[in-house]
Each structure stands twice: as structure tokens, then as C-alpha cells.
Design a binder for these strands. Structure first.
Lengths: 142, 142
DNA sequence: GTGAATGCAAAACCTTTGCAACTGG
DNA sequence: CCAGTTGCAAAGGTTTTGCATTCAC
């Protein structure tokens, strides 16, 4: 896994021409840069609006295409909360999401050290988990 | 909490005229009966199709209305997996959902005894969880 | 050069809404 | 009786698709 997720204000032109086997285009670079720039879990339309600032010709359909490509190549994570539109997240480490009911903001929440799925859930023998999503809602402390 | 969830082949006419403070109508009774009859996590449209068998005049919009009413009165649980349409579940006990990637079927999964959220997640002081949804995907054993 | 990606508009899909008619307690 | 619910059709919002053009390697 690459460490792009740690960058704060990435310049799209810094990205190599291929990432995780995905051919990079101007638009994909821009979409990735937008997601890395802020940790606020934007929706596709937010990404579109921000990307347009630097690239006025980009289309919403292209943003959706780029997001799909980035997600399927594990450069970005797609976050689905209830019935809302998907949000996108540059944090590729294991974590889940807490939506504060007052502010609407999404917070990343990590697992305590050493916690394993099989310790908490009754899963039958032979179960293989390929994807796990945990989402919480309520009042977030602090 | 009432024990309707345990019934196998409920007759809609068995339901009282009010449940959990919700005024029951023919349509709400039928929608509830459909969801209680099978544990396969149907989507709104599946509920509609099944309800139509006994009540040909029911409309899809009414099914959505009824589902919303039943969910908000805690008679039925709404299950959101990824970007799919919502599914509906009569199991009101604490549990989460596992979607088998081969069959597409949804399985209920329960927590091991004594597992508490605060034991597994790093939540800041003062956090209050009002809603928790855990969903898994992969190959379900057995 | 060539297969893949883009941009546009239109379609698809799920869910909600407005409103007149009806109904259940 | 009469507020609340239904059924219908239409609108809304998000995401996908078809296709000609353009681009990246």
C-alpha cells in the first residue's frame, strides 16, 4: 500500500502515471487530489464541485468513473451510510465511521488493539469475510 | 417489545388495531405479514409483489409508506447494504448482516455474549451511540 | 496508433411527494 | 366524523450508460 493517504495538500502532478496498476489521467489525478486534500468524506457531487475549480471542463460522469476506478484499485475508500449518497475517504487503514447527528460530520473511528472479528461475532466455520463495514450514528464526544 | 417476530405464518387479521402506538390499516397489516412470513430480507419491491398476491390494489408508494411507518415504530428493521435498495427484516434483536457473495443471500449474525461496543472501538469520552449498523460480505460457512 | 477514458445527454433506478378519494377507530 | 392513509402519477435525486471525441502510453 502506498502512503499517499498521509499527504496533506497533494499536487495532482506529483502522482506517477500509474498507481496500483491504474493508468492515471488528468481527471483521475485531480479527483484523487481532491479527496486527499480534505478529510471530510465528500460525496461525489462535492468532489465534482471541488474538481471543477481547477479543471472546469470535468464532468460529473467522469467524476463517477474516476471514483469507481480509484475505489476498485484501493486508492480511495467508498463509505456508505444509511440511505445517503456514497462518501469517499482517503484513509485506507482499518476503521469505521461515526456520523454525528448534530453536525452531520463523519468521524473515523479505529478498533482497539488486538480486536478480531471472530472474537466478537458468531460466524459459522468456514466463513470468509471479504468486506466489512461498520457505521455508527449518535453524538460524538469532544 | 412484542413477540410478533417469532411467528411463522402470520395472518394479518391477527394483528391488533394498534401496534406500538401505530394505527394499523389493512395495508400495514399485509406488509407486516409479508415481512414476518419469510426471513429472506426482501426489498421494498419484493414486499410489494408479495403483498399484491393477497391485495391486488395495493400500490408501491403505499408499501413504502407502510415500511416507513413500521420501521419508525420498531416493528420491522431496515437493512442497508452498500448501495443496494433497503431490505426489511423482522428480527428485532441485536444482530448484523452477512451477504454471501455467491448466493446473494443475507444471513443474520449475532454478537458473542458479553461483547460491548466500547470494548472494541476507540470512542472518545461522551460519545453516545444511537444507531449501529454492521454489514459483512464474503463466503458464508455451511 | 490504439485501446481506454472523457464529456455530454439521456436513461435507469429507487424513493418521495402532491393531491383527491377513501377509511378506520 | 375527520385526521390520517391510500393510490395514482409525477417529480426528485443519484448513479449509470451510450456514443462520438479525445487522450495517454
Amino acid at each position: 500500500m502506498i502512503s499517499l493517504a498521509q499527504q496533506k495538500n497533494p499536487d495532482p502532478t506529483d502522482f506517477p502515471s500509474e498507481l496500483e496498476g491504474l493508468r492515471m489521467t488528468k481527471q483521475r489525478r485531480e479527483v484523487l487530489a481532491v479527496i486527499l486534500a480534505e478529510r471530510d468524506h465528500p460525496k461525489a457531487n462535492d468532489v465534482f464541485t471541488r474538481a471543477q475549480k481547477r479543471m472546469p471542463t470535468i464532468s460529473l460522469a467522469t467524476v463517477y468513473n474516476c471514483l469507481e476506478a480509484l475505489v476498485s484499485h484501493n486508492l480511495v475508500r467508498q463509505v456508505n451510510l444509511e440511505r445517503e449518497s456514497s462518501r469517499y475517504c482517503p484513509n485506507l487503514t482499518d476503521h469505521c465511521h461515526f456520523q454525528d447527528e448534530k453536525s452531520g460530520k463523519i468521524h473515523d473511528v479505529v478498533f482497539k488493539d488486538g480486536v478480531k472479528l471472530e472474537d466478537i461475532l458468531e460466524l459459522p466455520q468456514g466463513t470468509e469475510v471479504s468486506h466489512l463495514e461498520i457505521s455508527l450514528k449518535g453524538t460524538f464526544g469532544q
